[in-house]
Write a protein that binds this DNA or RNA. Structure first.
Lengths: 340, 340
DNA sequence: TTGTAAGCGTTATCAT
DNA sequence: ATGATAACGCTTACAA
C-alpha cells in the first residue's frame, strides 16, 4: 500500500541511500538526481515511515506531557487547555508531537507513570504541576529522561518554568496596602504545593516590607477549592480583617459567598483579591480583582526549553546548567477592593 | 544502556525468540524456562522497546485526537478537558496512548493535518467537533485511516458519537411550553456546524409538535460567543418574546446582559434557557436553566468505539457497519425561567 | 556523488 | 518447546 524508500529508489533509478539523502536534505547529492528523486517521491506519494525512522535514529520527535488528574478536575479553570495550547504551538513549530497523559491519583498510579514514561516513545517529558512530593520527578531523574517541570521545583538538577507566584502575591498585597489596609488576611493554597507556598511567601514578604506584623490568626490554609474558601473565610471572621487575599479566584468566590451570608459587603466592608483570573472572576458580582498569569506562554516556554534540553542531551554529554525561568504575573484591578 | 531482548536471552541462556514469547505471554513455553526468563527480565530491568515493536507489528497503540483551535478558544467551556479526560481514561484501560493535536485555522492547516495524520505513528484518529466542511474527514477516508468523529456527521461511512443535541433542545423548549410560553425565541449556534443545526432542529420540532407556529422573527443566528448572544437578543427585542432558548450558555449570558441593560427582568419578564451547563451557568444571577451534556462520557465512548474499529480493521477486511451513537442530555432546572 | 551493507529491537515463520 | 532467520523501513558509516 504505502510506498517505501525502496519503491521510490526503483522509480528514480537510484539507491535508497540517495533517496534518504534527498528526503533529509543532505547536501551531497547532485541537483539533477535530486530533482529526479523529488519527482519520484511526488509520483509515488511517498511518506517517510516515522516509526522506522525512529528505530534507526533513536529519536521519536514525541514529547510527553503528564498532568495529575487533580489539576484537570478544576474545570472552572482553563489552566489545562491554555497550557496545552501553548505546548502544542511550540511543538508545531519544531515538528514535534505531544503525547498526553492524565493520571487518576489511584493505587496503580505509579505503574501508570512507568508505563507512560518509559514506553520508549518519548524524547522528553513535560511535567505539569506535580505535587512537591510526587514520585514522578525522582523517577525521571533516575531514568535520565530529559524533562522539565512546569512549576518551580527545589531539586538542583530540575529544569523548570513557572509563573511568578511570589511576585503576583506581592502585587496583590501591595495593592491592598496602598489602599490603606492593614488587617490583611490570606486564605492560602495547599501548603504542600509550590504555588501554595509561594503565594503565601509573597504575602509575608510584602507585610514585612511594610512593617505590618503578620498575625497568625489572619492566615488560614485552603486547598484552592470553593468550599475551602468558604470555610476559610468563616474562620477568618472572628479576626475581622479589612481585606482578604485568596490564593485562588475559586477560593475568593467561596469567601465572597460567606461574606454575603453574614451580611458583609464587598468591597465596602471587606476588600477581596483573588489569583488566577479565571473567566468567572470577571462575571461575579462584584467583579474580582485578581492576579493574571500567562498560562499559554508558560506551556510554550516550557516546551521550548524542554526541546533545547533534548538537543543538548544529544550534543554534549556534560552537564548543562539548570534552566530556571519565571514568567511575570500581572495585577488585574476590578471592583472587589476599595480603600479603607 | 537499556537492555534488549538479546541481553535478556543471554542472561537466561535461551534464544531471543523465547524471551519474546515470554514477554508476549505466548502459551508454548515450558514453565521452568518461563520462570528463568522472568528472573532475567527482572534482573536486567528490561523494558520492551515500543518503537521496535511497532515496526515489527505495524501497530503503535497510539491514537491521535485532533481538535480545531476554535473549540479550544472557548476557555469558559470545559468541553476540551472533559473530552480529553474521558478519552485518556479509555486509553489507559486499553493500554493505548493519546497524541494531541490542536490546529490554528491558518493557511498551513492543511499541511499540518497531513503532517499529523499520516505521520505513521497513529493507529487511528479521533476527530472532535470538526466543522461540517472540514477537509479532515474526507482526507481520513481517503487514507483509510481508522477514525471516529465526535459529533454527528452526515457521511454514510463515518463512525460517530455525539450527544443528543436535538433531544436536549427539545427538552428545553418543551419545558418552556409547559411553563405556558408561546412566544419562544431562539438564538442558534452557527448553522454551518452540526450542533448549531441540531439544536435549532430540536427547537423547530417541539414548536411543531405543539402546533406553535415557528415565526422567523423569533429566530436569530449566533456563533456560540457571548457577543453574538448580546446582539442576537438585541435583534430579538422588537419581537418581544416571552422566552428565549439560547443554543449555548455563553450566548445565554450575553442575552442576559442585554436584557438587563434594557431593564427587563429574568425570569419575570423573559424566561431564559441555555445549553451546555458550563460552570458559569450556576454562578450567574439568576442561575441559568440549561441542558447538560455528558462530555467526558462522550470522550470515553468515542475512544472505545475507535479502538473497536481499529481492531475490526485488522480482523476482517470487509466493511463493518457504521457506528452511530447518541448519548442522552439532561435538563438542569435552575432559576432563569418562570411560568408566563 | 552514489551505492553497499550493517545495524536499530522487535515479531513471526519455519525448522528442529 | 525452542532456536535460526528473515522481515519491518529507515539511517549511516564505509566503499567505490
Amino acid at each position: 500500500m504505502a510506498s517505501t524508500l525502496e519503491d521510490v529508489a526503483r522509480l528514480a533509478g537510484v539507491s535508497r541511500s540517495t533517496v534518504s539523502r534527498v528526503v533529509n536534505d543532505h547536501p551531497n547529492v547532485r541537483s539533477e538526481t535530486r530533482d529526479r528523486v523529488r519527482q519520484a517521491i511526488c509520483n509515488s506519494g511517498y511518506q517517510p515511515h516515522a516509526v522506522a525512522r525512529s528505530l534507526a535514529t533513536n529519536r521519536t520527535h514525541i514529547i510527553g506531557i503528564v498532568i495529575p488528574e487533580a489539576v484537570t478536575t478544576l474545570f472552572d479553570d482553563p489552566f489545562f487547555p491554555l497550557l496545552l495550547r501553548g505546548a502544542t504551538e511550540a511543538c508545531n513549530m519544531h515538528d514535534y508531537h505531544l503525547m498526553l497523559s492524565l493520571f487518576a491519583a489511584s493505587a496503580d498510579q505509579q505503574e501508570m507513570y512507568q508505563h507512560f514514561l518509559r514506553n520508549g516513545y518519548l524524547d522528553g517529558v513535560l511535567v505539569a504541576s506535580a505535587p512537591l512530593k510526587d514520585p514522578v520527578v525522582p523517577s525521571l531523574l533516575r531514568d535520565h529522561l530529559p524533562f522539565i517541570s512546569v512549576g518551580r521545583h527545589p531539586d538542583e538538577q530540575v529544569h523548570y518554568v513557572d509563573v511568578d507566584n511570589i511576585g503576583g502575591a506581592r502585587m496583590a498585597v501591595e495593592y491592598l496596602i496602598r489602599l490603606g489596609h492593614r488587617r490583611i488576611a490570606t486564605i492560602t493554597g495547599p501548603l504542600d504545593t509550590m504555588p501554595g507556598q509561594d503565594r503565601l511567601e509573597g504575602y509575608r514578604q510584602t507585610l514585612e516590607a511594610h512593617r505590618v506584623p503578620a498575625k497568625e490568626e489572619l492566615i488560614v490554609e485552603g486547598d484552592f477549592t470553593e468550599n475551602s474558601g468558604r470555610v476559610g473565610m468563616q474562620r477568618l471572621l472572628s479576626a475581622s480583617p479589612s481585606a482578604v487575599f485568596a490564593a485562588s479566584d475559586v477560593m475568593a468566590i467561596g469567601a465572597l459567598k460567606t461574606l454575603r451570608e453574614v451580611g458583609l459587603q464587598v468591597p465596602q466592608d471587606v476588600a477581596l483579591v483573588g489569583f488566577d483570573d479565571v473567566p468567572i472572576a470577571s462575571v461575579v458580582e462584584p467583579a474580582l480583582t485578581t492576579v493574571r498569569q500567562p498560562i499559554d506562554r508558560l506551556g510554550w516556554m516550557a516546551t521550548e526549553v524542554l526541546l533545547s534540553v533534548i538537543e543538548d542531551s544529544l550534543e554534549l554529554e556534560g552537564e548543562t546548567p539548570t534552566h530556571r525561568i519565571i514568567l511575570p504575573t500581572e495585577l488585574v484591578v476590578r471592583a472587589s477592593c476599595s480603600s479603607v
